[in-house]
């Protein structure tokens, strides 16, 4: 699993919202996809889901299966415009709670970032554009679907949704000029990027796997005929020995059987005491 760069997967409803992100990161369309439009570079995938929570959940799942390796570390990002009774047009908000208006199910994304501050607000996901703004909340049409799907693939610390206010009670959705969307989003991308960089550092600090001389480990694993459980046991023992910085030499390749190798590795491990 080690050595992967943290990747970012953007799930965005409309191409107008996606446009500034595609430009900012220099993403290129991958025309091999038919179900959804996908733009990408080495580190980033951006999928355009279309409107609504079901489309958003489907696009999130689709994007998951585009990963090079299902073990890679990914930040999931939903980005788009939303309404709010009184937040200023163009203001940026991090979603800290989503409620699906049709099921009332709530999901609570987790913020672990202290250094980059983006104001947070709850969001209600509705099926039709909101005109009453009945609650003191953001209103959108996708975010609950995004978190429902993303939380199957990642933990809630590594999925984020950012909303930029496009309409409020003074300037309702009916007066909304969609041509302004790219500029609104572009104006907030630097802040969002700082936040995501912090999250990437957090992921890197929290997933330290690469202790092992992978090639030698593979060589050992390929040198014996293991049952499935023996193979798991062997990997666990090799990892544990590596954590204690025990370097194995070539004798590990010359046991007469898998069982003898496992006995020998277990024996090595049982002699190790903790050092503080």
């Amino acid at each position: 699993m080690g050595g992967h760069k943290v990747k970012r997967h953007f799930v965005i409803a409309h191409s107008l919202e996606a446009k500034p992100v595609i430009k900012h990161y220099g993403l290129v369309k991958n025309s091999s996809h038919r179900a959804f439009e996908v733009f990408e570079n080495d580190q980033i995938k951006l999928i355009i889901s279309g409107q609504g929570k079901v489309n958003c959940a489907a696009a999130t799942a689709y994007c998951y299966y585009l990963s090079d390796s299902l073990d890679e570390q990914v930040l999931w990002v939903n980005l788009g415009v939303a309404g709010h009774p009184h937040y200023p047009i163009g203001s940026l908000w991090r979603v800290n709670k989503t409620i699906d208006s049709s099921t009332s199910k709530a999901i609570f994304p987790v913020n672990v970032i202290r250094t980059v501050s983006i104001s947070a607000a709850p969001a209600i996901t509705v099926d039709k554009a909101e005109r009453d703004y009945a609650q003191d909340s953001l209103y959108d049409m996708e975010v609950s679907g995004f978190f429902q799907a993303a939380s199957r693939f990642t933990s809630l610390e590594y999925a984020s949704s950012f909303k930029i206010v496009s309409d409020n009670k003074d300037q309702t959705v009916d007066n909304f000029d969609s041509a302004a969307v790219p500029t609104m989003i572009e104006a907030q991308l630097a802040t969002i990027d700082d936040y995501l960089l912090e999250l990437e550092n957090n992921i890197i600090n929290n997933f330290k796997f690469n202790f092992q001389d992978i090639e030698f480990k593979e060589l050992i694993l390929n040198s014996y005929q293991f049952t499935q459980s023996q193979r798991i046991q062997c990997e666990t023992l090799l990892n544990s020995l590596a954590v204690h910085q025990i370097n194995l030499d070539k004798t590990a390749l010359h046991h007469t059987s898998a069982k003898q190798l496992l006995d020998s590795l277990s024996d090595r491990l049982s002699q190790i005491k903790l050092t503080v």
Partner: peptide
């Protein structure tokens, strides 16, 4: 952030104790 029951926030499996 308001919630109905603490378990909505505390219990979901998709959380990382170390990150939190």
């Amino acid at each position: 952030i308001m919630c109905e029951r603490y378990s909505q926030v505390f219990n979901p499996k998709a959380q990382n104790f170390r990150a939190q």
